[in-house]
C-alpha cells in the first residue's frame, strides 16, 4: 500500500499548464528523487502533494495515517520577527522540549535551540527546517531543493543526514533537486520530470535513458561516481567558522 498515490494530475496557473498527466506512487521507506530542468514543474508537484495547489484534473490519494514533514526550498524570516529556534520548532503543533532536543539532535544541530532564526547561516537554517519537519514524526519527508545555497561538501553532508534519518526512522523521502550527481546516488528511485514524467527508475537507469540525456546531457554519469568517494570529507554546518560569520552578518543586518 503506497503512502501517496498521484493519479494523472494536471496543474496550471492561469492559462499555463505546468504539469500534464503526472502519475506516481510513493512507497513507505523509499527515497525518491524528482529531477528536472527549471520550470519543469518540480516545485508545483511538491506543492500539490502538500495541498497548497489543487490539481485541475486527476486526483491525489493520501494513505491513512500519512504524516508529512515538509522542508521548504528556503525560508526568509523578516528581521522584524523575533523568533528563537526552539520557538520555531514549537510551531504550530506545540512540541515538548524533549521532542525538540531529539529533532535537533537528529538533524545534526543540537546546540542551536536558543539562537535567533534570522542569525542562522544557510546550512544551519536547512538543518533547522529539517528538524522542524521531523518533529511530527513524519512517515513522508518532502524536500524542495533543500541544499540550495550550500556548497558541495555542505550539501553532500546534508544528504548523508537525510539517509541517516531514513535509516533511523524508516520514513519515505521525496526530494527535488537539480544537483543531479549528488542527489541521484542517494536515491532508490528517480523520476525525471519536464511537465510530464519523462522517465523513471533506478539512478543508473535514468541517467542512461535517452530522455534524461536529452534534458541534461551525458556528463552527469561520470559525476555520479564523485559523490561515492566523497564520504570521508566532513564539513559540518555548525563549525566555528560559521558562527563567527553569523555574528557579523547579524550585526550588519541590524
Amino acid at each position: 500500500m503506497s503512502l501517496v498515490s498521484v493519479q494523472n494530475i494536471s496543474v496550471g496557473y492561469g492559462a499555463t499548464k505546468v504539469l500534464r498527466g503526472v502519475s506516481l506512487e510513493i512507497d513507505p521507506g523509499e527515497i525518491l528523487t524528482v529531477v528536472g530542468p527549471n520550470g519543469s514543474g518540480k516545485t508545483t508537484l511538491l506543492r500539490a502533494l502538500i495541498g497548497a495547489v489543487t490539481p485541475a484534473s486527476g486526483r491525489i490519494e493520501r494513505g491513512a495515517g500519512l504524516r508529512i514533514g515538509y522542508v521548504p526550498q528556503k525560508l526568509h524570516i523578516d528581521p522584524t520577527l523575533p523568533m528563537t529556534v526552539s520557538r520555531f520548532l514549537r510551531l504550530p503543533g506545540g512540541a515538548t522540549p524533549t521532542q525538540i532536543a531529539a529533532a535537533l539532535d537528529r538533524a545534526g544541530v543540537p546546540d542551536l535551540s536558543n539562537r535567533q532564526m534570522s542569525g542562522l547561516s544557510g546550512g544551519q537554517m536547512q538543518r533547522i527546517l529539517l528538524a522542524r519537519a521531523l518533529i511530527g514524526q513524519p512517515n513522508l519527508l518532502l524536500l524542495d531543493e533543500a541544499t540550495q545555497g550550500l556548497d558541495q561538501p555542505g550539501s553532500a553532508a546534508f544528504y548523508r543526514q537525510i539517509e541517516e534519518v531514513r535509516a533511523a526512522t524508516g520514513c519515505a523521502v521525496v526530494m527535488i533537486s537539480h544537483e543531479l550527481h549528488v542527489v541521484m546516488s542517494a536515491s532508490d528511485r528517480v523520476i525525471c520530470l519536464n511537465g510530464h514524467v519523462c522517465c523513471e527508475g533506478t539512478p543508473e537507469i535514468v541517467s542512461a535513458a535517452p530522455e534524461y540525456q536529452a534534458l541534461f546531457g551525458t556528463g552527469t554519469g561520470g559525476a555520479l561516481a564523485l559523490y561515492r568517494h566523497d564520504h570521508d570529507h566532513s564539513h559540518d554546518a555548525t563549525c566555528g567558522h560559521d558562527h563567527a560569520h553569523d555574528d557579523s552578518t547579524t550585526k550588519a543586518a541590524e
Partner: peptide
Amino acid sequence: LTSTLSPDLAHAS
C-alpha cells in the same frame, strides 16, 4: 504565525 513565516509550511501543517 505559521502562515506569516511561510504559506507553504502552513499548508503542509
